[in-house]
């Protein structure tokens, strides 16, 4: 009886181990490739024939193609700005739609649902020309606006979370003479840490992930202006992949590390935020 139970525990854990193993193969390959001693892809063996850290060093020696330190800083700045604007906008819309009692609330929410159904890629060209009119193409401000200006539309998960905040607290505060602004700032915001963390992380990540808009808006071909995504994507260009594949892998690893750290620190809040939001949203 005990043996049978032990057996099932072992097989259960072996199954998980196998699944995790499968999930990690490409990541392990990425790490291995980044320590390869040759610049191009090794297609004959899984592990590099020779190991080396020289391409990590090369990553930090900018050349005409590789400007990784500049890309990283650009993306970081854009990410911070996007994060601040997006988080504010999302929280503002979520609070207004969750706590507000105005007539236009339902119609506005329905319009938001409709707008979310249009594919974003499509509107890219119009966004581009709007930015150009204001002289904001090839600028990080323009790119930040693209990432953050419409962020109010992604309010649903956050609203779902706010819906679970007990209304009694707010009523009590209202009786004490607090106005809406104070209730928002001093009662709702402090109780909503998980969803704020969730919003911050997901908006912070946007500039690291997107390359379509970045490529379109940073179209002057000046490498030092790029974001990490555009820059690394270029390294896999037909004419460059042969000399930059390993550097691409190094760059990929270095971008992933801060994101991974962020994730692990915030994992608890992240899960709480997204689930509380999803349960209701």
């Amino acid at each position: 009886m005990k043996d049978k139970k032990l057996g099932s525990i072992i097989s259960h854990n072996v199954l998980i181990a196998v699944l995790c193993f499968i999930w990690l193969i490409p990541i392990v390959w990425l790490v291995c490739m980044s320590f390869s001693a040759r610049p191009n892809m090794n297609t004959s063996t899984f592990f590099p024939q020779e190991w080396s850290t020289q391409y990590y060093k090369q990553l930090f020696q900018p050349d005409t193609v590789n400007q990784f330190p500049a890309w990283f800083m650009n993306t970081f700045k854009i990410a911070i700005a996007t994060c601040i604007i997006s988080t504010c906008f999302t929280l503002m819309v979520a609070y207004a739609t969750s706590f507000g009692k105005f007539k236009a609330r339902k119609p506005l929410m329905n319009v938001a649902v409709m707008l979310n159904l249009f594919p974003g890629v499509l509107t890219m060209i119009a966004v581009y020309f709007t930015l150009r009119t204001f002289g904001l193409t090839n600028s990080h401000i323009g790119l930040t606006l693209v990432y953050s200006a419409s962020s109010g539309l992604g309010y649903l998960i956050c609203k779902g979370f706010f819906d679970t905040v007990p209304r009694a607290l707010c009523e009590a505060a209202r009786l004490d003479g607090c106005n809406e602004a104070r209730i928002f700032a001093q009662i709702v915001i402090p109780t909503s840490r998980p969803i704020i963390v969730y919003t911050i992380i997901s908006s912070f990540l946007t500039p690291w992930m997107d390359f379509v808009f970045a490529k379109m808006i940073l179209n002057a071909g000046i490498s030092s202006q790029y974001t990490v995504a555009v820059g690394l994507y270029r390294m896999l260009d037909k004419s460059l992949i042969n000399s930059y594949f390993t550097i691409f892998c190094c760059g990929g690893i270095l971008v992933s590390i801060p994101i991974a750290v962020l994730f692990f620190i915030m994992q608890k809040f992240y899960v709480e935020g997204i689930t509380a939001g999803a349960v209701k949203g």
């Binding site: 906008f89 503002m92 819309v93 609070y95 207004a96 507000g100 105005f102 609330r105 506005l108 707008l115 249009f118 509107t123 890219m124 119009a126 966004v127 709007t130 606006l145 693209v146 953050s148 200006a149 419409s150 962020s151 109010g152 539309l153 106005n179 809406e180 602004a181 928002f184």
Partner: peptide, 20 residues
Amino acid sequence: FHITLLTPPIIGIVIFTVIP
């Protein structure tokens, strides 16, 4: 307060989503 909260996000949405 909802007007104060909604105005900036809606301006952003109008320029970067609705007009496109």
